[in-house]
């Protein structure tokens, strides 16, 4: 990483507040093209809450909570052989909005198999299950905010929304950073997938730049020759703004020195 911002920004303190979330970066709660959102979207405005310890803290995870194969979806459910499909590495950096690496972030992923079928009892799609593919994984970012996963490229699949809607190939990502305010779930898509243009879930995001941010690019430099292609997917979590001159979050508490 040679991003300029990485070099010029001092490290965050663990009790620094997070920058205000920009709603224009996200889908609205109600997006008519995604029908399920109609009854599941709050109608009242969110109440904006100045952050407290409750929002700037978050659970911390350690490597010993994860198994050695948790981040390798090619092997973590293999029973009788290897799963079928395109061997794929997905990697990238988790940074905050100031370009600082987010270390020790928990990155959790889930996806359909190469046929577009999830190993989930509610998924009834005709696409076949793969006895050797589970479809979930997790990994912690390293000191540079980097993560690596290995998987099978998921297939596209149809879903009930309009009469003939198809999801582009995608991997769901959940990211737990250093503060509760950073918690984020998103989906990663693959460069060049023609279904991206018409997907009602992607189209909940009105900003094209933000859509582009969800599309992983083929990364030939990270490809393993004769083995796996690689895709790069970087993630940006909310940044922490310094509270150097006032520690409003916990000062003046009873018995607390200033």
């Amino acid at each position: 990483m040679t991003d300029q911002t990485t070099l010029s920004v001092p490290p965050a303190r663990p009790d620094d507040e997070y920058l205000m979330r920009d709603p224009a970066s996200h889908p609205p709660a109600y997006a008519p093209g995604y029908k399920t959102s109609a009854l599941r979207s709050p109608r009242n405005s969110l109440i904006s809450l100045s952050q407290t310890l409750s929002e700037v803290t978050a659970p911390t995870f350690s490597a010993d909570e994860l198994g050695p194969l948790d981040g390798d979806l090619i092997r973590n459910y293999a029973k009788t052989g290897l799963p079928i499909g395109e061997r794929t590495i997905v990697h990238g950096y988790v940074r905050d909005q100031l370009g600082r690496p987010v270390q020790n972030a928990l990155v959790e992923v889930w996806q359909a198999n190469a046929s577009g079928r999830y190993r989930h009892k509610k998924d009834q799609y005709l696409g076949a299950l793969d006895p050797n593919f589970g479809g979930c994984g997790r990994v912690l970012t390293d000191e540079h905010g980097h993560y690596v996963l290995r998987t099978i490229k998921p297939g596209p699949y149809p879903w009930r929304n309009r009469i003939n809607d198809w999801r582009p190939a995608h991997i769901h990502f959940g990211i737990s950073g250093s503060g509760w305010a950073q918690r984020l779930i998103t989906q990663m898509y693959f460069e060049g997938d023609p279904l991206i243009a018409t997907c009602p879930i992607i189209r909940t995001i009105s900003d094209e730049e933000q859509v582009r941010g969800l599309i992983a690019q083929l990364d030939m430099a990270a490809t393993v020759p004769l083995d796996s292609r690689a895709f790069r997917f970087d993630i940006v979590l909310r940044g922490q703004r310094a509270t150097w001159f006032e520690n409003v979050l916990q000062s003046n508490a009873p018995g607390e020195p200033q």
Binding site: S37, H120, H172
Partner: peptide, 25 residues
């Protein structure tokens, strides 16, 4: 400032990703 990565729905199968055991997996 970099922009925060856009959110997307967790979808109907979030359980296999975040709570596979509870989903019988």
């Amino acid at each position: 400032l970099l922009r925060e990565t856009a959110s997307q729905t967790a979808g109907p199968y979030v359980h296999i990703g975040l709570a596979p055991k509870a989903a019988g997996f």
